[in-house]
Design a protein around this nucleic acid. Structure first.
Length: 249
DNA sequence: AAATGCTGCAACCGCAATGCA
DNA sequence: TTGCATTGCGGTTGCAGCATT
C-alpha cells in the first residue's frame, strides 16, 4: 500500500498482525477463562497473560479484555478491576461486602497454627472480628478471638494480609520462597527456629505452587460462584473462611 | 437513504528497560 | 560512564464496519 511506516510501526504490525504463528479468530472459552484467571492474579500485565496463551498477542488479549470480558463481568455484577462484586463498593453491610477472592489471594493455613498464634495474627491484623471470645476489654477490644474455620485447608485473604504485612511472596515467586521470606512477610506467625519452620514454609510454598482457578464466591447469601459454573475447578483449594473475612471489607 | 451511535481491533504514543559502541 | 538506538509494554486513539434511528 502507499502507507509509510517507520521501523517501530513495522515491528509492531509484524508482532501484532503479520506474524505467521498468530492464532487469530475468536477466543475459546478456555482462553477466556484463563485470561480472567490470570488478570485476577496479575492485573493489566497483558504481556504476561498473553505469554500463557499460545498464538495470542498482548494487544489482542488487551483488546479482548477491554471490549468483551470487562463488559461481561460488569453484566454479572463483578468489578473487572478488583474481581469483586460491584455491590461491595456501595455498601458497608458485612454480609453484602463479602469479597470475591482469586486463588492467588488464598493461602491455605497449616494445621500447625496454635490458637495463641491465631490470636496474635488476628490481633496484629486488627480485624473487626465478629467472634470475640473471653470478654471485651475496657477499650472495647475483645481480649481474644475464636476463628473456628482456621484449620487445615482454610485460607487467608492475601490482599488484606498484604496491607498489614507488606509484600507477601506471590505464586510466581513461590519457587524461591524461603523461611526468611515467610518470616519477613508474615511476622505475626512467629514460626520459631529455622529447623522447625521448614514444614510451614514447605506447606506455604507448596500451596502457592498448586493454586488453581476456582472459588469465586459471592457467598453473601448462597455461597455460590459469581462466575459461570464452568469456570470453577472442583479440586480447588477449599476456602471456608468467608464468613469471618467478610468483615474486613 | 442519510445521519448517528456503537463496537472491535489495528495502530499509535510515550515511557522505561535494555543493548551496545 | 555515557549517549544513542532498539525493544517491550500498557494506555489510548482512529477508523472501518455494522446497527439503529
Amino acid at each position: 500500500s502507499g502507507l509509510e511506516r517507520c521501523g517501530k510501526s513495522c515491528r509492531l504490525r509484524w508482532i501484532n498482525y503479520l506474524r505467521p504463528d498468530l492464532k487469530r479468530g475468536t477466543f475459546s472459552q478456555e482462553e477466556e477463562d484463563l485470561i480472567i484467571h490470570l488478570h485476577s492474579m496479575l492485573g493489566n500485565k497483558w504481556s504476561q497473560i498473553a505469554a500463557q496463551l499460545p498464538g495470542r498477542t498482548d494487544n489482542e488479549v488487551k483488546n479482548f479484555w477491554n471490549s468483551y470480558i470487562k463488559k461481561k463481568l460488569r453484566e454479572r455484577g463483578i468489578d473487572p478491576a478488583t474481581h469483586k462484586p460491584l455491590a461491595e463498593a456501595t455498601t458497608t453491610s458485612p454480609t453484602a461486602c463479602r469479597a470475591v477472592f482469586s486463588d492467588a489471594e488464598l493461602v491455605p493455613t497449616t494445621a500447625a497454627l496454635a490458637q495463641d498464634q491465631v490470636e496474635k495474627m488476628l490481633d496484629s491484623l486488627k480485624m473487626p472480628l465478629d467472634w470475640p471470645v473471653g470478654g471485651v476489654a475496657g477499650n472495647g477490644v475483645p481480649e481474644s478471638y475464636q476463628m473456628p474455620s482456621l484449620q487445615e485447608g482454610c485460607a487467608f485473604h492475601m490482599g488484606a494480609l498484604q496491607q498489614h504485612c507488606g509484600a507477601i511472596p506471590s505464586a510466581s515467586s513461590s519457587s524461591t520462597l524461603t523461611a526468611a521470606d515467610v518470616g519477613a512477610a508474615l511476622p505475626w506467625l512467629e514460626l520459631g527456629p529455622t529447623d522447625t519452620i521448614s514444614g510451614h514454609v514447605d506447606q506455604y510454598a507448596g500451596a502457592l505452587g498448586e493454586l488453581r482457578w476456582s472459588d469465586y464466591f459471592d457467598g453473601a447469601l448462597q455461597g455460590q460462584c459469581v462466575y459461570d459454573s464452568g469456570m470453577v475447578d472442583d479440586d480447588a483449594v477449599q476456602f471456608d473462611d468467608v464468613h469471618g473475612l467478610s468483615s474486613w471489607c
